[in-house]
């Protein structure tokens, strides 16, 4: 595949796959991330995917070389990356996220509907029937940057951000939708809430979602929401 490598610092580098975000570039980002996970090179500390990039943080002391560590890393990676191709038949992981829309869980649902000249039910219908891709996890632990929301339900951020948004809240900001994994302040329009935990520090993988996942939002009732929470106990 086509890529460029550049230093990020004196012990990290960035592999860039393109300039614009798209599902095709995302596939390449995902492929490279998986490549590093499968190989677990001992000099790699960790990799961090971005929208069109993969950063590699490495330990220069674990790289044997007579030249400089960065040169050696590039020399090692280039032939491997040259050979790497996206597998067209690879099915992305689909993660279902149950959402109880509206009411106290989604206080801004009506505002989003009014803003777009839609009914509340139409907003729910459009939001829960979208095809979404997780581009990357960032901003907060487990927070997914999600692409693919219909512009028909886009809505500007609140002019007056809330000081506390409860964990699990599902929101809209501009053309993006997202789910808050932990309680934080924020200006997103809240349309619902999921009983699913997106961030579990005690778990084996602390984040429910990973870059490259596809998401399906599944509407649930308030009773089902309560049942989910009780079952999780």
């Amino acid at each position: 595949m086509k890529y460029t490598i550049e230093p990020l610092g004196d012990n990290s580098l960035i592999i860039e796959l393109g300039q614009d975000m798209s599902p095709e570039i995302q596939q390449k980002v995902k492929k490279i991330s998986s490549f590093f996970e499968e190989h677990a090179f001992d000099w790699v500390i960790e990799t961090v995917p971005g929208f069109t990039t993969v950063a590699v943080f490495y330990d220069p002391l674990k790289i044997e070389t007579t030249s400089l560590p960065y040169d050696e890393v590039c020399k090692f990676l280039e032939p491997l990356l040259d050979e790497l191709e996206v597998d067209d038949n690879a099915e992305p992981r689909v993660v279902e996220i149950p959402v109880c829309y509206g009411g106290e869980f989604g206080p801004d649902l009506e505002e989003v509907a009014n803003h777009n000249g839609l009914t509340v039910d139409e907003v729910i219908d459009i939001h829960s029937n979208g095809e979404y891709t997780v581009y990357m996890i960032g901003f907060a632990p487990g927070f997914p940057y999600i692409g693919g929301m219909s512009e028909r339900i886009a809505a500007p951020r609140r002019s007056n951000p809330r000081l506390k948004i409860p964990a699990g809240s599902v929101g809209i900001a501009g053309k993006q939708t997202g789910v808050y994994p932990i309680e934080t302040p924020g200006g997103w329009q809240l349309i619902g809430k999921t009983p699913e935990k997106l961030f579990t520090p005690e778990g084996e993988t602390p984040s429910l979602l990973q870059a490259g996942d596809q998401i399906k939002f599944v509407p649930i009732s308030e009773e089902e929401f309560q049942k989910y929470e009780e079952d999780a106990k």
């Binding site: 500390i45 960790e46 943080f57 996890i137 961030f199 984040s207 870059a211």
Partner: peptide
């Protein structure tokens, strides 16, 4: 805490 930045964990 290294190894979890890909999950948004600083």
């Amino acid at each position: 805490r290294y190894g979890s930045q890909k999950y948004g964990v600083i």
